[in-house]
Design a binder for these strands. Structure first.
Length: 255
DNA sequence: AAGTTCTTCAACCGCACCCTT
DNA sequence: TAAGGGTGCGGTTGAAGAACT
């Protein structure tokens, strides 16, 4: 699903990146950083333009980037933020640690836009072929066939939380510092949010389950490749994301 | 089984903004 | 203050693969 590589009139390679190119770019940035994207490809020995290198690094090669496997809470967060901010993908991305603007944008257009549109229209018993198909094809692989068989588009918006579970992969390390009492401030109607316990359990499971400490990874493996600001920024973003998830939960309808 | 249609998403493009000179 | 270069952002494209007929 990638563009076939080719060379433009200036001899610059376009299209899909090869593993070799990825390795070259990654190794170069690990060693020398990326102070100047325009000069970088020439210095690194890549036949790419600086913008292409930047995009590749930012969206796929950065050590803390998460790919695919969107969870329901992330979907919910994106939907909410899009409602507040519009197509400010970069702003939205700052609230979802590890996610890039490009990926969020794609995810919105392929999964969430249709879902949200459907939710705002009267409930239909008819099957939305395209949305159903999308969900069946992609998310079935990730969240299970059982969920995929349901027509999620016809469900009330808040029921998206029915499968609410915080996966270790989704949750950054900062989540583990949340106090349990803070989570317990969330109150909901039992019939709507019978899964609250599940949610709390998920947090607790999350504390006990092993996961990759991405920042640690960065700092140990890529000590000189990233500006310090990126770490502090991402940390604050993580906390913002936590706040927002709490806010989303509290703002949900009571029935 | 083969052809067609649909869906996805990595990557490109153009524009706007920011910074330096 | 203007000009030029670099970077970031959002919209769009297009090829691959899945689903459908």
């Amino acid at each position: 699903m990638v563009k076939t590589p080719f060379y433009d009139k200036n001899g610059l390679k376009k299209g899909a990146w090869s593993a070799e190119e990825d390795n070259i770019l990654r190794a170069y940035i690990q060693k020398l950083g990326h102070s100047n994207w325009r000069k970088l490809p020439k210095s690194a020995g890549l036949s790419r333009c600086g913008k292409s290198c930047r995009l590749r690094w930012m969206n796929y090669l950065r050590p803390n980037v998460k790919l695919g496997n969107y969870t329901e809470e992330e979907d919910l967060l994106i939907t909410k933020l899009h409602g507040e901010l519009g197509n400010k993908w970069s702003m939205i991305a700052t609230r979802l640690p590890g996610r890039t603007d490009n990926e969020i944008k794609n995810h919105w257009h392929t999964h969430l836009k249709n879902r949200t549109k459907k939710m705002s229209t009267p409930i239909s018993k008819g099957k939305d072929q395209s949305a159903g198909k999308i969900y069946r094809r992609r998310e079935a692989d990730q969240v299970g066939i059982k969920e995929a068989e349901n027509d999620i588009c016809s469900e009330p918006y808040y029921q998206i939380l029915e499968s609410f579970s915080l996966s270790p992969e989704t949750c950054p390390v900062e989540f583990s510092s949340l106090s349990c009492s803070e989570n317990r401030h969330v109150s909901m109607e039992e019939d709507c949010f019978a899964t609250l316990e599940t949610l709390e359990q998920s947090f607790e499971n999350f504390w006990t389950e092993p996961f990759l400490m991405e920042d640690t990874y960065i700092q140990t493996k890529y000590p000189a490749s990233l500006p310090e600001g990126e770490f502090s920024q991402s940390s604050s973003c993580f906390n913002d994301g936590i706040d927002l998830i709490h806010q989303v939960i509290q703002e949900l309808p009571e029935n």
